[in-house]
Design a protein around this nucleic acid. Sequence first.
DNA 1: CCCTCGCCCTGCTGGC
DNA 2: TGCCAGCAGGGCGAGG
Length: 270
Amino acid sequence: MPELPEVETTVRGLARYLEGARIARVAVNRPDLRRPFPADLVQSLVGATITGLGRRAKYGLIHTDRARTMVFHLGMSGRWRIEPDTIEKHDHLVIETAAGHVLALNDARRFGSVDLVDSDKLDAWPAFAALGPEPLGDGLTPRHLQHAFAGRSAPVKGLLLDQRIVAGLGNIYVCEALHRAHVSPERAGGQVTRAGTERLVPAIRAVLEESIAAGGSTIRDYAQPNGELGYFAASWRVYGREGEACACGGTIGRAVQGGRSSFWCARCQK
DNA sequence: CCCTCGCCCTGCTGGC
DNA sequence: TGCCAGCAGGGCGAGG
């Protein structure tokens, strides 16, 4: 379930193989994921040198020396496979570097995407133009959340999933951040108190930073043959724990909000 | 503008 | 053992 920490971990892992590398071969094994692959993807990438990698929200960025950036989204099930022994089903895009490293973008459910964007126009790219601040940057403040939530009747759970308000949170980390901040996911945005937003900001940062640290610890395994990027063992306090005891002594419950499961403890989240 | 809902897709799980 | 319904979810568009 790639959210911000998984994408960040993936990008850091890919950088070991791609930073400064020249792309020797690109294989596109099906016409599309969520969208068609760019028609000029192969010709744009083959022969290019990768100048750097980055991340924006849940998107990974692979910058090239041709002023074009390959932007990938892992969707629900996307992952990069490193030095695979064999190309398997769902290895939709395969990149081989001049140094002989092979990286395969595998995405069984095909909710992911691959695009090519002019590097100097990334901020204006439609998917990026309306994104809210990065949660680990200076833009996420209690004041920002207070402003974004003001007057909203929708549950705060859904507002935090809205990439225009904060960029990069998904279902799991929203549940975890709300729990740490003692805010109920069902509370209307406009009814989140100032104290609530002041707890939410450090809670969001903490869950993301801890997850990145945990994911980063698996990077050492990436060099192994068949090593895979993007997943790490996480210990969640509420997500997926319906019926279990909360640390406060309450019981973790579950409800569907906006078609997605929310997990929270009604005893310590108000 | 705001809010909610359904769709896309496949693999895994659990119930019978 | 086999079958099948249900679930997972990010982004986006439809409709109220």
